Amino acid sequence: MFKGLCLNRQATMDAVQKRLFPRRRTRLRPAKLASLTNEYICDCTTRDISAGGLRILLNEDIPLPKEFYVFDVNERTIAEVRLSWRDGLEAGVAYLVPPASISFYENTGVRRLAQRFYAVED
């Protein structure tokens, strides 16, 4: 039994060592997702933030593209990300372009994410 506990502790330590950036847990931090072609994907909640990426919780079980935008509603920042993993409604994403103020984006499609209601044009 003691040997099993040591193996579990070692597996936990190995997993921690693989993390490149320390993560910071968030509480009810809303975000919006959009494709790189400015198509709205869904709303979500950011669960963890690190210098390398995010862990998000989707509001609905829909497919995600490999790369997309994440708009942080509270901070009013947008990041370009790559999907790293997915487990049900949870997903981990890595930054391709780190978060920056939405005001730096000239792309009007991306800037629409900052509006209270995001509408897709017909």
Rank of each mutant, 00 (worst) to 15 (best):
R112A: 14
W85H: 15
F104Y: 08
F2P: 11
R112N: 15
D72N: 01
D87L: 04
R47V: 14
C6T: 14
Y95P: 00
N8W: 03
A31E: 11
E90Q: 08
R82M: 07
P99R: 06
E121G: 12
E121S: 13
V97T: 10
R47N: 06
I49G: 00
D14Y: 04
V110C: 08
V120C: 07
N74S: 12
R24D: 06
A11H: 12
F71G: 01
D14Q: 15
T26Y: 03
E90R: 05
L36D: 04
R47F: 02
A119T: 15
S84W: 01
G4C: 14
T12C: 04
L5K: 14
T46W: 00
N107E: 09
Y40W: 13
Y105D: 02
R112T: 14
I62L: 12
I62V: 15
P65Q: 06
E121Y: 08
F71Y: 15
N38Q: 11
R47W: 02
R116M: 05
P30H: 03
P98L: 05
E67V: 03
N74L: 09
R23C: 01
R19K: 10
G52P: 03
S50G: 00
R23E: 02
V97P: 00
I49D: 00
R19M: 05
S103V: 11
L57P: 02
Y69V: 10
D14S: 10
G109R: 04
R55E: 03
V110M: 07
L64P: 02
T37G: 09
P30G: 12
R9K: 14
E60C: 02
R25L: 11
L20G: 06
Y95A: 03
